[in-house]
């Protein structure tokens, strides 16, 4: 439940924070640089005197938006392709799965930096890159789940009825794989968030001065000794969101019986 609470608070903040924050996140009028937490500035101020509380509340919006779109894309294309491959089998399945193996061997940060370096860091580019990268792993999960289904009677019956492949995928397979895809998607979402924050930290994600946790940590890390608040609060925000998602995934998996059915301890 703790996970759900963390997640709900973060999603709520992402949606409503612009209405409730006390200061303009990019204005310097907030106060002196590196002011410690006080009644006026609950989380203190950063290197340019901006309100850290305001920036922390707003700092997850871009990350959440991009990664939610990214993970939707990943689950959609990865899940669909995985189901098709599981159903069709044969040389196409063999060939593409080896390609998937090769893709999974490439470290994700290097892949993302490569894309960002070549194509740039527009939000659409990032969504497509993250969606593509994280979808590769989903293919494998969806395919494995499909393989256990294709030998079952209801799929055999559908085939005997002469149903089209796409009907089998959408009507027979998808409802049975969906719960697993949801759990998988949620889990990968937390990794994607971390990867996106890392990109921002490295200067490839959100452009300053837009408040973003990764950027905030990057900009204030060298002054941790004198103004730890400017780094700690955004760190705690990322941490709580990712822990929240992970805890929530555990509960979700238990609730839909995924852990018992598949013999998986999530």
């Amino acid at each position: 439940m703790l996970g759900l609470l963390f997640l709900a608070v973060h999603l709520l903040l992402a949606a409503l924070s612009p209405l409730v924050v006390p200061y303009d996140p990019v204005a310097f009028a907030g106060g002196a640089a590196f002011a410690p937490p006080s009644a006026a500035h609950l989380f203190g101020t950063d290197n340019l005197g901006r309100d850290v509380f305001t920036r922390t509340l707003l700092g997850g919006r871009v990350a959440l938006l991009i990664t939610l779109a990214g993970i939707g894309l990943a689950v959609a294309w990865g899940g669909l392709l995985g189901m098709v491959l599981g159903l069709v089998g044969g040389w196409l399945d063999e060939a593409l799965m080896r390609l998937v193996d090769a893709m999974l061997a490439i470290p994700e940060t290097i892949f993302l930096l490569l894309i960002a370096g070549i194509v740039g860091t527009d939000h659409v580019v990032l969504i497509l890159a993250l969606g593509f990268l994280y979808g590769v792993g989903v293919i494998r999960i969806a395919r494995t789940a499909t393989l256990t289904l294709v030998a079952q009677d209801f799929v055999l019956a559908a085939r005997a009825r002469g149903e089209h492949q796409h009907t089998i995928v959408l009507r027979e397979l998808l409802p049975n794989v969906l719960d697993m895809l949801l759990v998988e998607g949620a889990l990968r979402w937390s990794w994607m968030l971390l990867a996106f924050s890392a990109l921002s930290f490295l200067g490839f994600g959100v452009a300053p001065p837009t408040p973003d946790w990764g950027v905030m940590i990057a900009q204030n890390r060298s002054t941790f000794g004198i103004a730890p608040w400017a780094t700690l609060f955004p760190s705690a925000a990322i941490g709580s969101l990712i822990i929240g998602i992970n805890l929530f995934v555990g509960v979700l998996a238990k609730a839909i019986g995924l852990d018992r059915v598949d013999g998986i301890t999530v």
């Binding site: 999960i141 937390s190 998986i264 999530v266």
Partner: peptide, 8 residues
């Protein structure tokens, strides 16, 4: 997936 939570 059994190992997924721990690394993150």
């Amino acid at each position: 997936r059994s190992h997924s939570v721990i690394p993150s």
